[in-house]
């Protein structure tokens, strides 16, 4: 915890209160585009919040509102408040916000500039004025965490999509952010790459108490990593809860154009076929529930031989 002004508030605390945002019209004379409308949530250090919504639901705008790009660089009309610790992203300088909130984008080419991997990772801390010896340590730790230490002197432009995304995450980690915002971080990765990223995020939560805001179209990743899940539709939060609570509403999600995890679909379909009440999301709980249901034959109650 760090003292900021009169109140003690951790730099990793994220408070979003009744946030509404309209982009300026993209051509004069046209109506402004309403991107977010009345979003509220609260994350303490070490929490992971998931954001799930279709393309155009406002997910990426929300990410940009967390580091101040929205509205400071985009213009537009904003209502409500986004606080990172005691800093309001509406007014706090973007450069300083960058020392606290790191953003990993869906397209690694948007954040890498084709230099050597170590230079890419050093770029952020150099701009923060971190001493060279410490930068060196940060590069090493960050590359190690995401498993690309071997590529340290390769040019990032020569890496595959998955490798690039891991370098982009390492570059974010080198900023030692209190809040990590990830917009589709695993879209370009193969299953092993995704699992590696999920592992990195878990470690950050447990070891560093990093606050994580995770936007992804991968329902399994949301189920595995998040404590609270917000469903965004046309800029509004239309449902929130634990992944188990949210993914139990399969029909509603599909109406919104979203997919529950494959195994949650199986649970729902079996419930419809068998009048059971399965709620599993992942493999271990599915195996347990489905095995139990086979064993617990109601006949067994009156028939000791079965």
């Amino acid at each position: 915890m760090r003292r900021e002004g009169q109140t003690t508030i951790a730099p990793g605390t994220v408070i979003v209160r009744d946030l509404a945002f309209r982009y300026p019209p993209w051509r004069p004379g046209l109506a402004p585009v309403q991107a977010l409308d009345g979003i509220s949530f609260h994350a303490e250090p070490g929490h992971t919040i998931g954001i799930y919504g279709t393309g155009g639901s406002g997910k990426s705008t929300l990410c940009l509102a967390l580091n101040g790009i929205v509205p400071q660089a985009t213009g537009g009309t904003i209502r409500g408040e986004v606080m990172i610790g005691a800093w309001s992203t509406r007014t706090h300088p973007i450069a300083e916000l960058a020392s606290r909130v790191a953003l990993v984008l869906q397209d690694p080419d948007a954040s890498l500039i084709g230099r050597s991997v170590e230079d890419e990772v050093a770029f952020g801390p150099e701009n923060l004025g971190v001493p060279p010896v410490e930068i060196e340590q940060r590069i090493e730790t960050a590359l190690d965490r995401v498993g690309v230490a071997a590529y340290r002197s390769r040019r990032s432009s020569q890496l595959s999509g998955g490798e690039k995304q891991r370098v982009a995450i390492a570059a974010a980690l080198a900023m030692q952010p209190a809040v990590l915002v990830l917009d589709e971080p695993t879209a370009a990765l193969d299953p092993q790459g995704s699992a590696a990223v999920a592992g990195v995020l878990r470690t950050l939560v447990t070891e560093k108490r990093t606050t994580i805001i995770l936007v992804t179209q991968d329902p399994d990743l949301l189920a595995a990593l998040t404590e609270e899940l917000l469903i965004l539709d046309a800029g509004r939060v239309v449902r929130r809860g634990t992944p188990r609570e949210v993914f139990a509403h399969g029909a509603e999600l599909r109406r919104l154009g979203l997919t529950p995890p494959p195994l949650a679909n199986v649970a729902e379909q079996l419930n419809a076929m068998l009048e059971t009440n399965f709620t599993f999301l992942d493999h271990p709980t599915a195996v347990q529930s489905l095995t139990d249901a086979l064993r617990k034959s109601p006949l067994a109650l009156g028939d000791p031989t079965s």
């Binding site: 009048e275 059971t276 599993f280 086979l294 034959s297 109601p298």
Partner: peptide
């Protein structure tokens, strides 16, 4: 499989 184990089609939870 489930129907084979629950021949009387009694409701059952997981």
């Amino acid at each position: 499989l489930w129907h084979a184990r629950h021949p009387r089609r009694v409701m059952s939870g997981p």
